[in-house]
């Protein structure tokens, strides 16, 4: 799906959280959103997900205005602990992601098992979220997003609570998803390396209220790989550039 953001703005009460933002995210494109804490990244993602009413402007998914959670869009929330239901087992948590489309039972079980295998937790289906570590819960939240077989995946710092090895695995999982299914991905992160390594474009937001400081095209060759890509001189340049923008954004006028 293609996402069009048209002069989208949001305020909480009389405090602006997001200044008008416009952008286009093409079918199958991978866009990372970075910016200082509190600049409105999560707000932007909730607006894209149809979970918050827009203040001004609008979001279009394949030309259709978003005015509620659209079909085919999965969200991985920043607050993963509060987005899983503790009274349901992992399997039942995952099954809820497909309730809306009612797949056949065998198909559902198959999808759940596959999603859990993709995030490296094949043996947790019968357990409860509170019996898992923070990083494991975060991976369950990602698995749940996969069960719906989305065409748009919106993720809010989904790898924040996992160790470095798992993080690398999950990053490559997400890249593979995009490769295999042409999923359109928007990833909020404050890990600059991650944004450059994964994305086709990095949207750098200004401090609150967020606006687009820079829409940076990441011209690194595909396929990306943890060792190969991160060793490229161009990777270092892009990384430095994003870093500079995030660190020293007050002057606004980026080079």
């Amino acid at each position: 799906m293609e996402i069009t953001i048209e002069r989208l703005a949001k305020r909480y009460g009389d405090r602006p959280a997001l200044d008008p933002i416009s952008a286009r995210i093409g079918q199958g494109e991978f866009v990372a959103v970075v910016g200082p804490s509190g600049c409105g990244k999560s707000t932007l993602l909730m607006l894209l997900a149809g979970l918050l009413p827009a203040g001004e402007g609008r979001v279009l998914l394949d030309e259709v205005p978003v005015d509620g959670p659209p079909a085919g869009v999965s969200v991985v929330f920043q607050d993963y602990a509060r987005s899983l239901f503790p009274w349901l087992t992992v399997r039942r948590n995952l099954a809820l992601a497909a309730v809306a489309e009612r797949p056949a039972r065998a198909e559902l079980e198959h999808r759940i098992d596959r999603a859990l295998r993709s995030v490296g937790l094949p043996d947790t289906a019968a357990r409860f979220p509170w019996q898992l570590s923070g990083g494991q819960q975060q991976r369950v939240a990602i698995a749940r997003a996969l069960v719906a077989e989305p065409r748009v995946l919106l993720m809010d710092e989904p790898f924040a609570a996992v160790d470095a090895q798992t993080r690398a695995d999950l990053q490559d999982l997400v890249l593979r998803l995009r490769e295999e299914y042409g999923v359109t991905i928007v990833l909020v992160t404050h890990d600059v390396d991650e944004s450059v390594y994964l994305a086709d474009r990095v949207l750098v937001l200004s401090p609150a209220p967020g606006r687009v400081l820079r829409d940076l095209v990441v011209d690194l060759p595909a396929p990306r790989g943890q060792l190969v890509t991160k060793a490229l001189p161009r990777f270092a340049e892009l990384r430095a550039e994003v870093f500079r923008l995030v660190m020293r954004p007050v002057d606004g006028a980026a080079p």
């Binding site: 959670p69 929330f77 239901f85 349901l88 309730v99």
Partner: peptide
């Protein structure tokens, strides 16, 4: 009920019955 759970339920597009039985009543 924790708004985080309700927001998740909304994003999963749970139908009314599932929302009630799987989320609201247990919470």
């Amino acid at each position: 009920v924790d708004p985080g759970w309700l927001r998740t339920a909304r994003s999963l597009r749970l139908p009314r019955g599932a929302l009630l039985l799987r989320v609201v009543l247990p919470a």
